[in-house]
Write a protein that binds this DNA or RNA. Structure first.
Lengths: 207, 207
DNA sequence: CAACAAAATTTCCTATAGGAAATTTTTGTA
DNA sequence: TACAAAAATTTCCTATAGGAAATTTTGTTG
């Protein structure tokens, strides 16, 4: 399996200075400043977008005041971030500043009776998405004992061949290379190849 | 753009009764009252748990005042709900039991100077992943004014051509069709085509 | 339907958030 | 360096959130 180690740059100065108390400081100010700066906005511009005064924004960012909820709403709306996202821990589940490579064909094989999965990016734990390429051996809906069903959402892109996606509640649908689907994975689903050959698809699951 | 209508399974009763006003009312007051009552707490008890005055709680629940962020923190902590959860729409992200199709080439075009994005599954709002196919026009790292950087994680699969992925902290890496990468999108990143032709890649972003 | 108790709301202050304008700091350029 | 322009911060008010206590509402029992 492939992996990489950086040649060690400073990984993260991690904004905040010193020691952060354990739970829930939730540096709203720092957070907002990051968001604003990522969008390349001055306080003045942000002020116009949000309807809050420059001074107010400054004080919020410097944690001199605790914004009211209505202020937070204006902020979120004006800067186009949704509120849960605003308060979610900034860290993504995966350690910051990492990446993994999987060369073609070098994923982790995971065969079943109907599919031949090749899991990608397996070196990375706790990631939000699970990507895998799948060779579809199933030729018939009867090949399934039952629907596949699990938490989360699923994105599907056909790479080669012709397939039919069966899902609960809907008619099966034929897909050609380049076609893609996005669906709720809680809804039963299954894939079959419509041609003589096995089909090849990319799947990405978000939990 | 492609879309589908099922032959009518119960699509969504859409949880909440009554009429929900369109955007962003986010009935914080109602929400809090629900939470408190679900825990069988009187205002007095909630007051003790949160450290906020009865009267304040009452006013917040009745939307007579807009709580400060510190008040919201006390509430969340005292009633043991986390803040993102507090603000998250109660219902699951995508309406249950739905799927959307995007035929090859039928995505939503979104060109920039260096890329030609084709957004997929755009008919589906509030999904966890954002998939798009991108034609990479950039030939040179200099084509970027700066790193692209945003919340979330990113999965990349090369479909055609040869590309180099530039990321902060790491050496650029050359990728061929079938190769894939998974990385933290907070880390600056950018993609260039290494061949004469534009390259084609699939990107999936999870926020 | 009184009469009471428990809970919720309102009142009436004090403390603090929000806005306009003045001041200071930063940034870029000669 | 020095200076000008832009950006950020601070000051100084006004508006509004937060708390203690009074008032009203709700719900229960004889």
């Amino acid at each position: 399996m492939s992996e990489e180690q950086p040649d060690m740059p400073e990984l993260k100065i991690e904004s905040g200075s010193g020691t952060e108390a354990r739970v829930e400081p939730l540096q709203l100010g720092k957070r907002l400043r990051q968001i604003r700066q990522n969008q390349n906005l001055t306080l003045e511009e942000a002020s116009q977008k949000t309807g809050l005064a420059r001074s107010t924004l400054s004080k919020i960012e410097n944690e001199q005041i605790s914004p009211t909820f209505t202020a937070v709403q204006k902020l979120a709306h004006g800067l186009d971030v949704d509120i849960p996202q605003l308060f979610a821990k900034p860290k993504s589940s995966m350690a910051s500043g990492r990446r993994v490579l999987t060369r073609a064909g070098e994923g982790t094989a995971h065969p079943t009776s109907t599919y031949e999965h090749e899991l990608l990016s397996t070196d990375l734990a706790r990631k939000k998405m699970i990507p895998f390429k799948t060779r579809v051996r199933a030729r018939d809906f009867e090949d399934f004992s039952d629907w596949v069903r699990h938490e989360g959402e699923e994105f599907l892109l056909v790479l080669e061949g012709e397939v039919a996606l069966y899902t609960e509640f809907y008619e099966p649908i034929a897909l050609l290379p380049g076609d893609s689907m996005y669906y709720d994975a809680n809804m039963g689903h299954g894939l079959v190849s419509l041609s003589e050959e096995d089909a090849l698809v990319l799947w990405v699951v978000a939990r």
